[in-house]
Amino acid sequence: MQTETESDSLSEFRDWAYLPPEIVDLISVKVKYIVDYVRFRAVCSSWRSASCPKPRHLPPQLPWLMFPYAEKARSKNVRTRFFYDVWESKMREIPIPETWGMTCCASYRGWLLLVSYKGRQVSLLNPLTRCEIELPAFSCTWYHLYWVDFGKSKMTFSADLTHPNCLITVFLENDWVISCRIGERSWKRCQLL
């Protein structure tokens, strides 16, 4: 049988998962490093739902460098990517099955532009928040895209991806520029002089 003091001391240790969402949100905005923010959201489902999946309060972060799948990973059908965290000088291993069979042809503000073989599937992926945005496929009439070295491509957004008029622009290494808005069915393209 528990004594009164034992009962009181047990009640002092509340389950952190039951913090009010307002308190969780107040704590989440105090986190300043993206890795810590990802860990914060991974504590439990109630903390994840109470915190913003696209935090705007984080200061600019040094980029992580993503490594291609190693041959060993391909042969074992492993869906894990390795990232080099410049800030902490550490390798990080993150399971990202969405990147399997896709080429990362550009990145911007933490988003990866993923393209499947011959551009039949194109999407934006945030590897930390796991948010994915489908984009139009590349046109099969763009025969020159099949020979593009996507590793030399660059990407930019005109605004935050949640903005209805956000324009996504990709600069390809063959002096072609393609752009689209989220929800459009095709890319517009032009060649630079």
Rank of each mutant, 00 (worst) to 15 (best):
I23T: 07
P97L: 06
W142F: 00
Y84V: 05
A106R: 01
K76N: 12
R81A: 04
E71C: 07
A106M: 01
F40Q: 01
R92C: 13
Y108D: 01
T3V: 04
F138G: 01
E173S: 11
A73M: 14
E71Q: 14
F157M: 07
S7C: 09
W87N: 15
F82Q: 09
C131W: 15
A70E: 15
S153N: 03
L128N: 02
H144S: 13
V24T: 12
V38N: 03
W87G: 14
E132R: 15
F83S: 00
L26H: 11
P95G: 08
G183R: 13
D85A: 03
A50V: 03
S89P: 07
Y18T: 14
Y37M: 05
S11A: 12
F13G: 07
N126M: 02
E134N: 13
W47P: 05
I23D: 01
P95E: 12
V170K: 02
W100Q: 11
D36N: 02
K118I: 04
K72Q: 15
A159I: 09
S9K: 12
V78W: 09
Y37L: 02
V78I: 13
D85I: 04
F150W: 14
K154F: 11
R92H: 13
P59H: 04
I34K: 14
F67G: 07
R92Y: 09
R74T: 10
M91I: 15
A42S: 10
L65D: 00
V170D: 03
K30A: 04
